[in-house]
Nucleic acid binder design. Structure first.
Lengths: 341, 341
DNA sequence: CTGAAAGCGCTTACAG
DNA sequence: CTGAAAGCGCTTACAG
């Protein structure tokens, strides 16, 4: 069944394609009578404008691209949900690509989206991304770009983030407030800004409380597909290396849950022998036992705000107005549960 | 920065647009010399074909649509991951929409995707969907359609599923084998085929083992955003209504985890006082305590297979060949853990 | 109020 | 081997 075109409607009604087009779009310079006729026929024929042709003419696709490190991930899937919902409200569709924490893939995917001529791009960076030319290219092409969560400070585009340093400080301070004096940190990968900031927040809280900062208490995890296992492994190492640690601040809930599993296995009581604070407030953190104290990170909200910003920029560009990149910082909060005293 | 067009390349080299187009696509009837010249210039100018124009000419978008009930969901996010990965391999992009378990939204979204002229559509139905005309419309337009997980038997398209009845039978049989004699069932919503099938598998296992089927032991949950709370609520009701139940087979892990939380709260020991089997093998089921016995449901694999089938059908339609709808059934397995004896 | 015309950027059947 | 021409289905500035 071939789709109906403007031409067919025009022929049927013995009027021109131009008039049909204008009638359907409610141009003021078409008579009411003609409009009514056209609209009725369009409806009975189930006319749908050919998006390909519309895109070609209007030079926009009403489609945006999203590159995300991991899809099966409590926080990121919440962000996706927020973006998709907000975009749909504004008549935009979202193409989603997973970078798998790989710089190479991420680069290719940005290229794919550019080829596709999406109206804008949203991204949370892969752990492996240290070069940002692919992102600068997006901006050079005049396409709006919004980064969220894992951002690059150096790229002059809009960003939606939380104050990772402050949140990490809060988490560590909570451990100190509840009596911990020797606190380890399972940090994220080396490159991402957010794992750097969380580390710095941890360190600052120690120093502000006159606790020594000991690098041997900092363990690294990639926080990729293997997060849970990384938690297990790091906890094992930690227990092996040190016998005086009484608290851990961990970069991500899933890693923390892995760590707590290992602690339980080795008979280390949480929170009495070892207190644990995670980050991100994954759903399962509330249902495990002991439940996990963590930092709430508003995923859906982040997705919504990021899309709203992108939308503004798309509109601005359409009107040939300059874009003013914004950094939007969302609030976080400490959620106290059973894994701390 | 305006994108480069074929015309610009043609003018620069003093040849025709047609030749440039053919050279870039390695048509055999273009001289090697011309091809080399064209390709080199295209590269230095960073030429990207305008997808809008290509789409208009070729009548395909290399884009498919996916409608999914919930994004923040262990099983579905795995399916998304599988689809997106497989599609990318074949040069297809995926537009994702969330129906939120609403028939109305689902219908609108199918329309959106049809308007967008995606090359094919994949869907897992919303709980609320009882009318299938929006899906039949897809087929009538000659667009490939593949359903997965939550399907409608009556729609003559390809489907990727598991044998829900068999899996539920297995789960219930396991409860019986480990000594349960009065087994409740927290089923899914009334309409979806998979919750009907799981219910039927449960019932059949009872009857095959000469255990009476008692409708008052069957509780319903929508399995939407509130899954966890539904588990809590249903467990509360169950404990209130009956004091002789010793096992529950539950439609989804997340509901089961809610139920176990309530059981723990009320001091009911799992598995000794009450054994529990879930469905779907969510990651958190392995890390809670006691860990949850469940049925493994291969999400990524389901996504991949569903895309592969869609791809075949897209190719077939392109060649004007008929589509032979297939039903692909994936294997499941029982994963025994601590919530059963 | 209506329509003829140009054009978006490509592809492809056809002529030479 | 190369190119002129038609056309995909729309939009919009312009003429009448």
């Amino acid at each position: 069944m071939e789709p109906v075109t403007l031409k067919q409607i025009a022929e049927e009604l013995n009027i021109s394609v131009a008039t049909v087009s204008k009638a359907l779009k409610d141009y003021p310079d078409v008579s009411k009578k003609t409009k009514a006729l056209v609209k009725e026929l369009a409806k009975t024929l189930n006319y749908k404008p050919n998006t390909f042709a519309v895109n070609l003419r209007t030079r926009e696709s009403k489609t945006i691209g999203l590159v995300i490190p991991v899809i099966v991930h409590h926080f990121f899937s919440n962000v996706i949900k927020g973006i998709v919902a907000q975009a749909e409200k504004k008549g935009y569709l979202v193409i989603i690509l997973q970078s798998n924490e790989s710089y190479e893939l991420e680069k290719k995917q940005i290229d794919l989206l550019l080829n596709q001529r999406v109206d804008g791009i949203m991204i949370s960076l892969a752990n492996g991304t240290a070069d940002f030319s692919h992102l600068k290219q997006v901006l050079e092409l005049g396409k709006p770009l919004v980064m969220f969560d894992k951002i690059a400070k150096i790229v002059p585009c809009s960003k939606v983030v939380i104050d990772d340093r402050k949140a990490a400080y809060l988490a560590t301070q909570h451990l100190i407030d509840t009596g911990c004096t020797r606190i380890a940190h399972f940090r994220g990968a080396l490159l991402p800004q957010n794992s750097i900031d969380r580390f710095l927040g941890y360190k600052k809280a120690l120093l502000d409380n006159d606790l020594p900062y000991d690098p041997s208490l900092v363990y690294i995890c990639e926080c990729d597909d293997r997060s849970f296992e990384e938690g297990l492994d790091n906890a094992k190492k930690l227990l092996n290396d040190h016998d005086d640690v009484d608290g851990i601040f961990i970069n991500t809930d899933l890693v923390a849950i892995g760590a707590m599993t290992e602690l339980a296995k080795q008979g280390v009581a949480v929170p009495n022998d070892m207190a644990v604070v995670g980050f991100s407030n994954w759903f399962m953190s509330s249902v495990i036992s002991p439940s996990l104290t963590t930092i709430n990170q508003p995923g859906v909200e982040m997705g919504k705000r990021a899309f709203k910003q992108l939308y503004k920029e798309i509109k601005a560009i359409k009107k040939n107005k300059p874009i003013n990149p914004k950094v939007i910082t969302l609030e976080t909060e400490l959620i106290k549960r059973e894994s701390t005293k």
